[in-house]
Amino acid sequence: MNNNLVVKHNDLIEASYKLTLEEQRLILASISKVDSRKDVPVEIMITAKEYAELFDLQLKHSYFQLKEATNNLYERDIQIKGKKQTERMRWVYKVAYSDGEGYVTLKFSPEIKLYLSQLNGMFTSYQIANIAKLKSLYSIRMYELLNQWKITGKRVIPLGEFRRILELEDSYPRFADLKRRVIQPAVDELNKQTDIAVSFDVEKQGRAVSTLLFSFSAKPVQLEA
């Protein structure tokens, strides 16, 4: 499974979309089966056993989550912002759950495949184990956004851009609510459940928050006795 490595073009990291936790996990598990140096496979299979091992789940829960993930995944779209236009596309053009056999097959859409292979350096990668324990889709997205800048350990995101990426333009109009419901819980979960330590601050224009300032670093590796 390509060492369970997730590799995405940076435009995909910064794209605007919203998936359920189960859908996000299925997409990431499928991407981890792609060798970014080669063409994306025509069809990808994820078994309940693989899914359970990747996300540290009981097998019975894995069956349920895989089935849930396939219910609406075909309808999910993603918007990738370019210099002159924003492209809207589907994640997959086929997805199926095999009842009684416990596996999913999916085919990434041709447009999405362009952001998963032959990336020529414009990509972000991480081990899927680093996000396996995250329960919030916002935490997963934030991990990716930070990991994109892991060399510097700092990420500056205009608040409007942050809302666009997470599709929160029409949610939590008061920053205090956005911080309480989205940002702070995600930061807390990243600190508790991932390999990075995160803190954040804000910049203001007048009295309004305009920019999010994230600082993060790799946690010390715990050596087994």
Rank of each mutant, 00 (worst) to 15 (best):
T86F: 02
A197F: 08
A208H: 14
E50T: 03
V104L: 09
P158L: 01
R207E: 00
G160K: 15
L146T: 01
T70C: 12
E22V: 06
Q148G: 01
N2I: 11
Q58C: 07
K60N: 08
R164P: 00
P185K: 09
E111T: 04
S215Y: 00
I46Y: 05
S62V: 02
N147Q: 05
V7F: 08
K60V: 01
E203F: 08
G206D: 06
Q222Y: 13
D170F: 09
E68A: 10
S215I: 02
D170I: 06
G102C: 09
K84Y: 08
L145A: 00
Y126H: 15
Y126C: 13
L168G: 00
K204E: 04
S98L: 06
L21G: 08
G100S: 07
L145S: 07
A132T: 02
T124M: 13
Y126S: 14
P41T: 00
Q184Y: 07
G160E: 05
V95S: 12
S36D: 11
K113I: 06
E23N: 10
K107M: 12
V40R: 05
E169V: 02
D170A: 14
P173S: 06
K107G: 04
Y143Q: 11
K94N: 03
R155G: 04
F216Y: 13
R207V: 08
R155C: 15
E189R: 02
R141S: 08
G100T: 08
F108Q: 07
S136L: 07
K179F: 03
K49G: 12
K38H: 09
S117K: 02
